[in-house]
Each structure stands twice: as C-alpha cells, then as structure tokens.
Design a protein around this nucleic acid. Structure first.
Lengths: 183, 183
DNA sequence: TTGGGAATGCGGCATTTTGTCGCACCCCAT
DNA sequence: ATGGGGTGCGACAAAATGCCGCATTCCCAA
C-alpha cells in the first residue's frame, strides 16, 4: 500500500490528547510522513497557513473550537489536502458535516495508523456493502441527539428543550461514549 | 436564503417499501411538493433522466442496485438536485459515501416529513412555519422498535437481541405504550 | 464598559427505569 | 417424552433520570 514513496509528504496531526498524539505521530512517521503536531485548532491554524500540508488528521472533539472549523479552513487553504477526521464521539451528523466541509474520510476512534493511511487513499464508490442489521436503540438515540444538536449549533440547553429532556440528562448522555458505531 | 415558492418543486421519492412510500408521499405533497414515486433504482433512473427533479429522497437499502448508485446518477444529471438519503440501516461509512457522491443529507429512519423537508434546507411554503420540531426520543424509539419487531414477525426475544436490549425491558416498553404520538 | 440574561459544568439526592434471575407455562420438532 | 426456544411476570439490586442549586463563563445590548 505504498501510495506515496517518492519524497515524504507533509502531514498535520491535530488532537488534544497528548499521549494519543505522540503515539500516532510516531506510527505515521514510520510510514513515511513528515508529521507536524498541534493540540488545538488555534495552534494548528497558523501552522497550516504558513505551510499547507498535503495530509491532515483532525480530531473533532477538542477543547475550544470544534475541529470542523479547522477542516473547513484546511480545505479552503488548499483543496487538494486530504483530510481524515478522527473522533471518539462519532455520529452521522458530524460525519455528514465534516465531509461537506471538505473532509476526505471520517473514522471513529480507535483507529490505527494503517486505517488512517488507507483512508487517505480512499475514493468514493457507490458499491459499499450495506449494513445488515438495524442499529440498536442506543445508537439511534445518539444519532438523533447529535443531529438536533448540530441543528442547534451545539447549544445544549436549546437541544434539551427541543428534545423534551432535561439538560442534565442530555449532558450526561453526551459525556458518555456513543454505542459502538454501526459498522 | 432565497425562498421561492411560487410554483411547486418536483420531488422524486424512491423507496421499495410501498406503505412507507405512499404515506411519506402524501405528507410531502401536503407540504407543497409534486411527488413522483419509484420503488427501485432501475425504475427511478429513466424518470430522472426524462425529468431531473429538484429534490429527491432516496432509500439506500433496496432490492437490486444500491441507492448510492442513484445518488451519484442524480447528482451527475443535475448537480443542483437536493438529495436526502434515508435508510433504516444507517452507518457512518455509507453516510460519508453518500455525501461524497452528492447527497445533501443523510437521515436514519424513522424520520418524519418535517425532518426531511428541513434537511433539504428549503421551505416550500413560507406560510407553514418551518417548525420542524424533531420527534422526541421516545417516539423515535417506539417507531424503531415497531419496525424491527415487524421484521422479526413479532418475535420479542429476537427483536430484543437485535436491538441489544433485554427481553424484559422490551416487554415492559411494549406493554406500557398503547397510546404514542405526541404530535 | 457594564449589566443581565442565557449557557454550562458539576455535585447531590429522590425517583424511575433498567438489568437480571427465576419460575411457570406453551409450542413444536425430534 | 423431551429438549429447545418463546412468552409473561414477580422481585430486587443497580443504573439512569428528573430536579434541585450554584459558581462560572459568554454574549449582547444599553
């Protein structure tokens, strides 16, 4: 799977989890990328502006500005940048949003370096196998919540009111990891 | 936000579930769309070629060709077509694919007509307020359960396993709900 | 610049809703 | 008849939720 071997491509890795970051960074370097690290959108933006990377791995849920903003910025800086969005709180709503903003792929954590590299080379094909089994109720709820939350621009109070559930409960649900994603 | 509603927009609805189709069709017509029905990709393609619709609602899982193919075709025929993908077997992978192939939104069934219209990001008749109050979590859950239950021919144990919930809990949920529908 | 209204992130409970077991039937195919 | 599901349902512990309150932080209009 050596898609790229001539000279080393640049890769911007943005994630606020230090440990995860260094581990993944090392793994990616071993696969031939020149990795630059950033731990927040604010930190990543100037780096990207000075030197737009060929590849990027962006975590969605970071303290401060959402990774989605960075995805958009990266895409605008250089539409050729291949961006993989990575998140521990995967949902269809944010996946759709990320792709619309220019992401190449959207992966749920945990994902290993090989999967990420593979995602860079992935091109759209209408021949994806469909899921055989219906999602669990928990998953369904999670997706629904995420979608409404997205529509409310992340406003938890508004979402709770709209969904007719208590803010505290919503908070708790959001804090929990989503049920294993449907395939 | 240019909302032009003088003449009714055309909408192609493609789903192989007859009942679901007619119900949704009626609901969409009530909201001002001129609806054309198709029950398979093969059936939908010629219709779209003759007359590319302004809007489309496509079910992913249909016997025969995947709805993704149709999404791509529709988008190629007219990039301005707003396409909402709808499926009872939602997955992040297919959502990403769908959007890359040109879909505007990707919703998990059950979704009501209002949510679908809202997904188009277009209000066909400004008189009717764009309320689009999302269904409550409870209602969603109820409908999803009913859907799966039906697929399992009423087998409660099997449904519970599939939904990843305990049989006892499913029983209780089913027992406690002769009157749903808050809307 | 400065209030004030709205959001947010918690920490506690009191209540409900679950997860789990067990048990008593029913079918039905072996 | 016998074993393997499936179905109801009671009981009780464990977990989730509803519902406070409070300290902060945001944001916007005066």
């Amino acid at each position: 799977m050596n898609i790229l071997s001539a000279d080393s491509p640049s890769l911007l890795l943005v994630d606020d989890d230090q440990t995860f970051c260094t581990v993944l960074s090392r793994a990616l370097e071993k696969r031939g990328f020149i990795v630059t690290l950033a731990h927040s959108v604010e930190q990543a933006l100037p780096l990207a502006k000075v030197n737009p990377p060929e590849f990027a791995v962006v975590d969605l849920k970071m303290s401060g500005v959402s990774g989605l903003v960075l995805v958009q910025a990266l895409h605008e800086l250089d539409a050729a940048t291949r961006i993989v969005v990575l998140t521990g709180y995967a949902s269809i709503a944010t996946a759709v949003e990320a792709v619309k903003l220019g992401a190449t792929q959207y992966l749920a954590k945990p994902a290993n370096a090989d999967e990420i590299v593979a995602a860079f080379g992935h091109s759209p094909s209408p021949n994806l196998p469909l899921n055989a089994q219906p999602s669990s109720v928990d998953r369904l709820e999670w997706e629904h919540i995420q979608r409404v939350l997205q529509e409310q621009q992340g406003n938890i109070s508004a979402t709770a009111r709209l969904l007719n559930m208590h803010r505290r409960t919503l908070q708790r649900k959001l804090a929990k990891r989503p049920a294993p994603s449907p395939a």
